[in-house]
Design a protein around this nucleic acid. Structure first.
Length: 739
DNA sequence: GAGCACTGC
């Protein structure tokens, strides 16, 4: 290694585009509370600005905190900055992410995930430890970043107002790519915007002819993507290819097709660049084993062109060097919350224009590149939105609203959102919190709600865990809560032989606990693996995701610590319960899942009791799927919408256990919650409401009646939009096949 | 009778 390349990177930092703006940037931060800094990737803002502020003495009174939406980014950037500042990581420069706090008393520049900072705000709303907060990658619009943005505006936009727990003013810097900076500035009291030029290479984009607007619902794009990738391989100069598709099965199909077709290439005649002698095809998606993922980053052998077929993971989370060509399908899989049917639906949708630019940009990191979009210009104009709908507008807000309420923000509707979620999403969240007893009828956080907010879990799961802890059986629920908050632990391979084998093993695991309760199976898998001598090979033998289970172990430990801390409180609820263990376990689950209750309807069809009355089926992966016994009432963890509406992770219950909880599902209506949310309820109104409620209770809204009413409803009306679209797609595919 | 993108506490 030569002397120059071993020199600390600090000397390079003077050549970064940001360097010549150093003095002006420091001045801009000094002069105002809020500052928006924009610059494309490569401008150096993430690594340099915190150092400039440190040098300028901004850390005299407190830390400089920098947030990132992703763990890896927080860690790697901290490592680099520690190196540039010539100090040990974890001393002056450190990072904090979940399960990994690498900071100390002396840490003055702290990188962290946005979720970590949000947790800190909960403990210390004045952020008294910090002198500067820098929110990075704000254009990505992660849920946590959006909430932090609103909180910072809310708490610190009036500098003269004494902020609780602070003796000196806080500086807030918001960093974003060049999109929508006017909007950000306007949001933050029309603060100044500082633009830094980036250092990126040009990427030439072309449109294709394959996907026209009417093809939105077809999967023809897989074939087209393969065709274009092969064209690039044969008729473009050397350089690696990155293909964007939407999911695992699609990627595997595309890789098979590519492999098949690449075999028939005659490298003497078919390729333009004679230095190219082969094609290395590599799939890339999140649930892939990490050692397999690592292969992606190795440079290909000489003369071989690498072609990576990836999900959106390659758009922001992972950077692959040497990519010169992009093939963009124009689609992405997105989780959307559908409030009409009250569930989350994972669906394939066209990407936004800004996302398409982002994908194209992946080819211009080290030199100029080319991006081949398989869709037409018309598709771009008519089907692709300018920007991606921010997460806050398409996810369930239950946990977020509870956080806000715990921070003393009662008017969650008029909270300053950069992009306001639809009111019905907020009301739905309030309704659920009320059902969980996390807030009372006037929207105030209850004691239970204060306990719930401490857990990094879905509120329902937290509710079940707290119930278990109050009757002294947390040992049963801690592992289950952990298992349900990590990625799916059951491996189901693509090829039929292994699939049979995996299914057999999974059925055997379920049978160990009686084969009647998927939650119990999770508990058993957790315990069996934990007590095994060689846990990783135990997982391999049983077709269980070892990586996922390992993270379940960490989550369980964390939940246990939080619970122990809360149980020290004098007011921690304690209840007694008689009955056997199986009943106790399931009754605790009911406390968190009574919103997810379904009742047997006709045949094997179940009907949900959440007021939407959707007709659902037990997913074949459930141990209850092939049970012949008559099931009457069940609770379930989640819903999957594909050919049918499936409920997964299911457990039979007795009606008596939820009887008293079910009326609560129909107790409040949206109008009433709307006034609660705004805190405009006068005492008079409250009285009227109470009387009305009392009258309702007198009527004894019978749950059986509700069931009957729901059963009379036409099946089709309760089926989600997603299902209708799925059927349409399926029909279209069948037609394509027939042709 | 099986269609799970990606983050994060």
């Amino acid at each position: 290694m030569s002397e120059t390349s071993r020199k600390p990177k600090y000397s390079d930092s003077k050549h970064l585009p940001i360097y010549r703006y150093k003095a002006k940037l420091i001045q801009a931060v000094e002069e105002s509370t809020f500052l928006v800094v924009t610059g494309e990737t490569g401008s150096g803002k993430t690594t340099q600005l915190p150092q400039y502020l440190y040098e300028a003495g901004f850390s005299r009174n407190g830390k400089i905190g920098v947030t990132q939406p992703r763990r890896v980014a927080a860690i790697t950037v901290a490592q680099r900055v520690a190196q540039e500042m010539d100090c040990t990581l974890g001393k002056e420069v450190g990072y904090q992410v979940r399960f990994d706090d690498c900071t100390c008393q002396d840490t003055v520049v702290k990188y962290m995930t946005d979720g970590c900072l949000l947790r800190e705000v909960l403990a210390d709303p004045g952020l008294s430890q910090y002198s500067v907060i820098i929110l990075d990658e704000v254009h990505e619009r992660s849920l946590n970043t959006d909430i932090l943005l609103g909180l910072l505006k809310n708490n610190f936009s009036n500098p003269s107002k004494a902020t609780k727990g602070r003796s000196f003013p806080l500086k807030v810097v918001v960093m974003s790519a060049t999109l929508e900076t006017d909007k950000l500035s306007a949001f933050l009291s029309c603060c100044p915007v500082f633009a830094i030029p980036g250092r990126v290479f040009p990427v030439e984009c072309t449109f294709g002819s394959a996907v026209k607007p009417k093809d939105v619902e077809s999967t023809a794009y897989v074939k087209e993507v393969v065709k274009v990738a092969l064209d690039v391989h044969t008729s473009e100069l050397a350089g690696d290819i990155l293909v964007f598709l939407t999911g695992q099965s699609e990627i595997e199909r595309a890789c098979d097709l590519l492999f098949e077709k690449a075999e028939s290439i005659d490298y003497r005649y078919d390729v333009l660049d004679q230095t190219v002698e082969g094609l290395l095809i590599l799939p890339l998606y999140g649930s892939m084993p990490t050692d397999q993922q690592r292969r992606i980053f190795q440079p290909p052998p000489p003369g071989i062109r690498k072609c990576v077929v990836a999900t959106n993971i390659a758009a922001t989370s992972l950077t692959i060097n040497g990519i010169k060509y992009i093939v963009d399908s124009g689609f992405v899989k997105q989780l959307n919350h559908n409030s009409r049917v009250g569930m989350d639906v994972l669906e394939v949708v066209p990407i936004s224009k800004s996302e398409a630019e982002q994908r194209a940009g992946r080819a211009g990191r080290t030199s100029s590149g080319k991006c081949f979009r398989i869709y037409t210009k018309e598709f771009w104009e008519k089907c692709m939105p300018e920007y991606t709908v921010p997460e806050i507008q398409r996810t369930s807000l239950t946990a977020v609203i509870l956080t806000l309420k715990c921070l003393g923000i009662h008017d969650v509707i008029r909270f300053p959102y950069l992009d306001r979620p639809e009111e019905r999403f907020i009301l739905e969240a309030l309704k659920q919190l009320y059902q969980f007893d996390a807030i009372d009828r006037r929207g105030r956080v209850t004691k239970l709600g204060e306990l719930m907010v401490e857990f990094p879990l879905h509120p329902g799961l937290t509710r079940a865990l707290l119930k278990a802890a109050s009757v002294g059986c947390e040992e049963l629920l801690l592992p289950v809560a952990a298992m349900l908050s990590v990625e799916n632990i059951f491996i189901r391979p693509g090829d039929p032989d292994n699939q049979k084998e995996a299914d057999k093993k999974h059925r055997a695991l379920a049978a160990k606990t009686g084969g009647m309760n998927d939650f119990a199976t999770l508990l058993s898998v957790f315990q069996s693996c934990k007590s095994s001598d060689r846990p990783s090979s135990w997982c391999k033998d049983n077709w269980i995701h070892w990586r996922a289970l390992k993270s379940a172990f960490s989550v369980e430990t964390q939940l246990r610590e939080i619970l122990l801390r809360l149980q020290q409180r004098k007011d921690f609820p304690v209840e007694t319960f008689d009955g056997n263990k199986s009943e106790l376990f399931r009754r605790c689950l009911c406390a968190g899942y009574f919103t997810n209750v379904a009742r047997s309807s006709v045949g094997k069809v179940f009907c949900t009791m959440d007021g939407h009355g959707s007709m659902v089926h037990i997913h074949p992966s459930s141990s209850l799927f092939e049970q012949e016994v008559d099931l009457n009432w069940v609770i379930f963890h989640d819903v999957l919408v594909t050919s049918r509406i499936y409920i997964r992770t299911v457990c039979p219950i007795r009606y008596e256990w939820v009887k008293d909880l079910l009326p609560k599902l129909h107790e409040v209506d949206v109008y009433e919650l709307s006034s609660v949310a705004r805190e405009e309820v006068t005492d008079e109104e409250m009285m009227k409401w109470e009387t009305r409620e009392a009258a309702k209770r007198q009527q004894e809204v019978s749950t059986v009646d509700v069931v009957k009413k729901l059963e009379r409803r036409n099946d089709e009306t309760s089926v989600s939009d997603a299902r209708a679209r799925y059927l349409q797609r399926k029909q279209q595919r069948q037609q394509n096949k027939a042709l």
